[in-house]
Design a protein around this nucleic acid. Structure first.
Length: 677
RNA sequence: GGCGAGAUAGCUCAGAUGGUUAGAGCGCAUGAUUCAUAAUCAUGAGGUCCCGGGUUCAACUCCCGGUCUCGCUACCA
């Protein structure tokens, strides 16, 4: 394995439109922090980089909703999240932001550089502009008729019917799915990164040279590469972001995916004038910690950018984690369903390590995992308190009782003593192996084995009994117990930094380097230790219930408030209304449209006729359960072909709070074809 | 529908290149113990290794088919 001279560790830039929650921590920041702290203890040259990602459309939308400027939004969450990280002990060397000057400059230059080298393809296109919404429309927000096959339900980027890929300007009779209005064409210029050009080396670099990447990461990349890469626009028509640094780029900004990863570079620049040795020297090992939603950007797109630029190194590994669920449900920022870090820190002051432990011990390393408060409690009470805290406590209490806190001189060691002492070094090696392979769960478990070893040693040696008959022997036993404790402060430091600092205070030693781990004489005889406190305290059922109730309350509130009520539409005339032919009908047959997930093909009796309607409701209804149902339809909607089947009308559905579709049915049975008015 | 990842004890997870009684931690049971926050230590009970086929002397491990979960994607007038 190659030996690197220094490390560059990056952690996904959290998007500054909401607070941080446990999913963020478990996915990226806790592993990254453990890794970084470990490397620092090894004396490696390492910088850990992070910052807020503060550009992009969602932030402008949130700002608009709240009637404030985007800047106010990002300021709010940048400072909140920066503080959360600090308070939680995530030890970035810098936590920057993408709205600052250095970043704007760096991103501009990066763009300019690629532009000068001719790496971009430049393309004028007629883009649709929604005059009502006041913005350009992404292709997928536009629908219209396919110029090739006449399919009226073609999207701006692709026609599903004939499979041809389109530009929205090709569509006949386009309409905006944002406002429903007809957008107007405006000419606009954009720059594209031709990812297809880089496919060959990406394929070799990932699929051949990095087979050691985690299966989820490797598989995801392979999937993308096998599907074939497309050029991607690096600019957007928007006013919130890094301006395109070209005369003809006025009014345009760098697309957020292009801008954000450059944030790693600009943050490093801000941190040190020596930033180039971290980014451009082949002896630097770069590692990106991210969640699985970010794999394609960090494994394919960003490396393509770096390679295109030419002077940058590429990541050695991208240990992406899967997702964390919460009490069986998905974490949701918008629905406020999460354990927020800033709230946790208030509710459990001084218990950063408990959450660090809990999230690391059940991190979603290989598959999605579920965080439950009960498990959190169990991890604390049964492991941190009972195994680790207890061992430390009994060692320090005994040392104080027997020797007034003065570490005794060891006598002759028996075979078991030797075995136990030797075991420390073995545990250290195991932890190293785990951490260096990004297996943090395993590393933590292994580190905890040292505390288990300590408990067992005391139980076997029984100093509280031997003291009565052979006090000399007890000196050896207690010396060894103290050495184990001192080793704990090293081996657990990356995982539980707050607690180990506390523990070092009690045993009255300074922070030691990783290489000291395994030593049998970290603390010299005669050394005086301090009075200990409790390293961890039990967490009561009441505290846990309180947290669980909080989540239940959120759920309940979400249910009550229901889904967002969409704004009222414009007034229409009575004539407009009478144009609609809404009537009752009965489902005669129902079957799934093959090779789709959502589509059902229904045969219905409208009173006038029997006809076919294709409807996107397959996720909510068993076909046969629909047969015989009384429904309401729009009977005079112009027919349209969906997946090659002509759909003659539309079934009326209502959506409940969970997004589930519900049939709109007459309260009492009426004849088919009865007009709804 | 396409692609990717996953499915192993109550829970969280290990199980290179197929090979005797499938492992760990926590939980549970029993016993021991009392220095310790009723903590610890020992022992033990728990598994159709998602299902169905196949290859093989031998499959949790390989092949084929299927089911379920998650993600990306398509689709949803």
């Amino acid at each position: 394995m190659k030996k690197f001279k220094r490390y560059l560790v990056t952690s996904a830039l959290p998007y500054a439109n909401g607070p941080l929650h446990i999913g963020h921590l478990a996915g990226a920041y806790i592993p990254s922090d453990i890794y970084t702290r470990y490397l620092r203890m090894r004396g490696e040259d390492v910088v850990s980089i992070c910052g807020s990602d503060e550009h992009g459309v969602p932030i402008t939308l949130k700002a608009r909703n709240e009637g404030v400027t985007p800047k106010e939004i990002v300021d709010r969450y940048h400072s909140l999240n920066k503080k959360s990280f600090e308070d939680f002990g995530i030890s970035f060397d810098i936590y920057s932001r993408t709205t600052n000057e250095t970043h704007h400059k760096t991103a501009s230059e990066f763009f300019q550089n690629l532009y000068n080298k001719g790496e971009f393809t430049e393309k004028f296109s007629e883009q649709y502009f929604d005059e009502e919404a006041g913005c350009f429309l992404a292709d997928r927000y536009i629908m219209g008729t396919c110029p090739h096959c006449g399919n009226e339900g073609a999207y701006g980027d692709q026609c599903e019917k004939c499979g041809s890929s389109l530009n929205s300007s090709d569509l006949i009779n386009p309409h905006s799915t944002v406002s429903g209005t007809t957008p107007v064409l405006r000419k606009t210029l954009h720059w594209y990164l031709p990812l297809d050009k880089y496919e060959d080396w990406l394929r070799k670099w990932i699929l051949e040279d990095h087979k050691e990447w985690k299966a989820n990461v490797y598989g995801q990349c392979k999937s993308w590469l096998d599907q074939g890469l497309q050029p991607r626009a690096v600019s957007r028509d928007l006013d919130w972001g890094v301006p395109v640094p070209l005369e003809k780029g006025k009014g345009k900004v760098l697309y957020v995916w292009f801008d954000a990863p450059i944030g790693y570079i600009s943050a490093t620049k801000e941190l040190t004038p020596d930033w180039e040795k971290y980014w451009k020297d082949k002896d630097t090992k770069m590692v990106h910690f991210i969640g699985k939603d970010n794999i394609v950007f960090h494994c394919i797109i960003f490396p393509a950018m770096l390679k295109a630029e030419g002077s940058f190194i590429l990541p050695e590994n991208v240990p992406a984690n899967e997702f964390l669920n919460l009490e069986g449900d998905k974490i949701s920022t918008s629905r406020n369903y999460a354990v927020w870090i800033h709230e946790y820190l208030e509710d459990f002051p001084g218990k950063q390590d408990v959450l660090r432990y809990s999230l690391c011990a059940s991190a979603p390393e290989t598959k999605d995992n579920d965080f439950t408060w009960k498990e959190f409690q169990a991890r604390n009470n049964n492991e941190l308190v009972a195994i680790l805290g207890n061992f430390v406590n009994r060692t320090l209490v005994l040392t104080n009782n027997y020797y007034k806190g003065q570490v005794p001189e060891p006598g002759e060691k028996n075979e078991n003593d030797q075995n136990v002492l030797n075991e420390i070094a073995r545990i250290r090696t195991n932890v190293e192996t785990s951490l260096e392979s990004f297996r943090f769960r395993e590393g933590l478990k292994e580190a905890m084995n040292l505390a288990r070893l300590g408990n067992k040693y005391l139980a076997d040696a029984e100093p509280w009994i031997v003291i009565k008959t052979d006090p000399e022997r007890v000196k050896t036993i207690m010396n060894i117990a103290v050495q184990i404790t001192a080793n704990l402060t090293i081996i657990l430091e990356p995982f539980l930094p707050f607690s180990m600092e506390k523990l070092r205070g009690w045993i009255n030693i300074d922070k030691r380097v990783w290489n000291d781990a395994g030593c049998h004489d970290l603390i010299k005889p005669g050394h005086i230790i301090n009075k200990p406190g409790l390293l961890f305290e039990k967490i009561s059922d009441e505290e846990i219930e309180k947290q669980m109730n909080k989540l239940l309350a959120t759920k309940k509130k979400n249910e009550e408030s229901g889904q967002k009520v969409v704004p009222a539409k414009d007034t229409i005339s009575f004539d407009d209304f009478t144009k609609l032919d809404i009537r009752t009908a009965t489902v005669l047959e129902a079957e799934k449209v093959p090779r789709t997930t959502k589509l059902l093909k229904l045969r219905i009796d409208t009173g006038l006729d029997t006809r076919t309607i294709v409807s996107g409701i397959a996720e909510y209804f068993e076909p046969k359960a629909l047969i015989g149902k009384n429904i309401s339809i729009v009977a005079n909607l112009e027919p349209r072909k969906i997946r090659g089947i002509e759909s003659q009308g539309m079934i009326l559905m209502a959506e409940d709070k969970d997004g589930k579709l519900v049939l709109v049915t007459p309260a009492e049975k009426v004849n088919n074809g009865s007009v709804i008015k």
